[in-house]
């Protein structure tokens, strides 16, 4: 009953649109190294003692994705430092992340959105969001707010014998600090947006607070690590189960335990009686 009632509620796009939507939580924790190194449990009721790889308070959200190579290296470095200090019984100040992720309901920026940059040398120019980082409340705007960087140090360039090459690298723009604003499609002016239930009450829409006009969500916002668009996802041969096969209902309720049902399907007959056991 509760499930059907919940299913009838309007779906919330703001809690579904996420690039890392299908990344397993354990995997993300593992690449951030926020996993226990050792747990001393079974302490006769006293809470377990946990030695972390990287202490959860020390995991600071970064502008890169946690599974990217650079970020992984940084996490491993921090992990070693933490362990080193622990072993030599020295004090290591944990970084205690200062940024607090904006809640789903209050977050209105998605990939492919038209935004206006309000700071820096591109102040007043409009562009599309190329990447969103929810953990740090930052967005990257396509070809805006970029700086010239070189990927190699001088020593490396000398060693390789190549001349220096500079590339433009986009810098993050903070939503929290109001460095970007969404563009209202009605008058092409920057605006604050918020999520509202539509008049029919069956859909959450993003509206401009100034004019009340709807700002439609671009299709690019659907993009995750696995696909650009959910409908255009191609099943991997021999690995993925096709969607219609997944949704085919084969469940038939039987008054049997799972094990008994499997035994029946394999034709295994068991006549022996179970002896009583004691739980303590």
């Amino acid at each position: 009953m509760w499930t059907s009632r919940v299913l009838r509620l309007p779906r919330k796009p703001f809690s579904e649109l996420d690039y890392a939507r299908h990344m397993p939580e354990e995997y993300v924790k593992n690449v951030q190294r926020v996993v226990p190194r050792k747990v001393w449990g079974e302490r006769f009721g006293a809470p377990p003692i946990v030695r972390w790889m990287v202490h959860p308070d020390d995991a600071v959200p970064s502008s890169k994705r946690p599974w990217e190579q650079d970020e992984l290296q940084a996490s491993l470095k921090r992990q070693n430092k933490y362990h080193e200090k622990k072993v030599s019984r020295k004090f290591l100040e944990l970084r205690h992340s200062q940024t607090k992720q904006i809640s789903d309901q209050d977050w209105t920026f998605f990939m492919g959105d038209q935004v206006e940059v309000l700071v820096g040398k591109d102040k007043g120019r409009q562009g599309t969001i190329s990447r969103v980082n929810r953990a740090t409340n930052e967005v990257y705007v396509d070809q805006m707010h970029a700086k010239l960087v070189t990927k190699f140090s001088d020593d490396e360039l000398k060693r390789l014998g190549v001349s220096q090459t500079l590339i433009w690298e986009e810098q993050p723009l903070s939503v929290e600090k109001g460095q970007v604003k969404l563009v209202d499609p009605n008058d092409n002016q920057p605006c604050n947006a918020s999520w509202k239930l539509s008049k029919a009450g069956d859909e959450w829409v993003r509206v401009s607070e100034r004019t009340g006009f709807e700002i439609p969500i671009p299709t690019q916002a659907e993009m995750t690590y696995d696909y650009a668009q959910a409908e255009k996802y191609i099943d991997v041969e021999g690995k993925d189960t096709p969607a219609d096969e997944v949704l085919r209902i084969t469940f038939k309720p039987k008054l049997m335990a799972f094990e008994e049902e499997i035994m029946e399907s394999f034709g295994i007959k068991e006549n022996r009686q179970r002896k009583p056991t004691y739980w303590y």
Partner: peptide, 15 residues
Amino acid sequence: PGRSWTNEELRLKSS
């Protein structure tokens, strides 16, 4: 390969 099976999808399947 894609994401893992969710509980909701697995509930549709026979034992």
